[in-house]
Design a protein around this nucleic acid. Structure first.
Lengths: 162, 162
DNA sequence: AATGAATATGTTATGTAATAACAAGTCAAG
DNA sequence: CTTGACTTGTTATTACATAACATATTCATT
């Protein structure tokens, strides 16, 4: 298991973590000629600061604090842009969004959502994705995108819940 | 690959298919002492007739035709009951519901959603689920439930689009 | 049969998530 | 310096989901 995944369930330096991820995201944007405009950049920062999944309207609330208009499209457009470009992920079970922790690296995240503390971990889903492609291939289905999400209890909450 | 999955993407006798599935669902309900009341039974029939994923309000529209009140809880309660008891599935990517095609048989469905014709197939996701449990176990996460969904093109639509 | 606990339904209202549509502004390439 | 692509501002609407509480039904137990 890689380090980042483990980190999601442990205490760590959020500030350093998010600064590094943001820096990597900016590199990716530059390399691909993406326009990381103020709203978009701020939206990504917000997701990184939260370090968990945020609903579009929660993001919007924070954008408002930064002077942007309180209008759903403001948040949705920025979030959609980030998701389209692999800088954020959409968590369907939560109707929420989270910053991608591995921008640039092609990866198929499998999300682990704690029912109790709502921490979100991005586990490496390569094996999962492979099994999925196999199952789909067997019936001739050509996969474009997939969402692989699980709910349950993170290590800490398992202890707490006994 | 099992037969049912293949069937989802081919022409077949919908009427016979849904009658058989409904019969199996009724057996399951009897065996487990579930109360398959009129709304619930009718809701299941509606899902089976559609043979694709339906939004809660689409289900509600059809329930209204059968004399039930046009109130969201009517549809949601019936749908939630069916999902809770494994007689239907919730497709998160679509905010929609579909009848389970294998009621009673424990299974982990992997959903394949065609972007073009919106057909939904329930592929056997055992291998996928296993890979998932492995990935989760490695970080100490205890999975309760998971959703495995993919969008893409079904065989027929690949040809049409190709 | 009476009764009480659990379950299911009827109903009103509200909360939450997401998008349509169009006008106006920005920016880089020709 | 203008054209075309992209981005943003703004209004309004649509879609999805649940809270809360009253009523009724069911079923096991007296």
């Amino acid at each position: 298991m890689d380090q980042d995944t483990t980190l999601a369930f442990s205490a760590h330096d959020h500030a350093a973590c998010r600064a590094a991820t943001l820096a990597r995201a900016e590199e990716v944007a530059r390399a691909r000629n993406l326009r990381l405009t103020p709203v978009r950049r701020r939206t990504l920062e917000i997701l990184l600061e939260a370090h968990k999944a945020l609903g579009a309207y929660e993001v919007l609330d924070r954008l408002v604090e930064d002077g942007f208009a309180r209008q759903p499209p403001v948040a949705y457009r920025a979030l959609d842009f980030l998701v389209e470009n692999g800088l954020a992920h959409r968590i369907r079970r939560l109707n929420a969004f989270a910053a991608c922790l591995h921008p640039g690296e092609p990866h198929m995240p499998a999300f682990l959502i704690c029912d109790r503390c709502h921490t979100l971990a991005e586990a490496p889903g390569t094996a999962v994705a492979e099994a999925m492609h196999q199952a789909a291939g067997a019936v001739g289905f050509a996969i474009d995108r997939m969402s692989i999400e699980a709910t349950g209890l993170c290590p800490a909450c398992q202890e707490a819940a006994g």
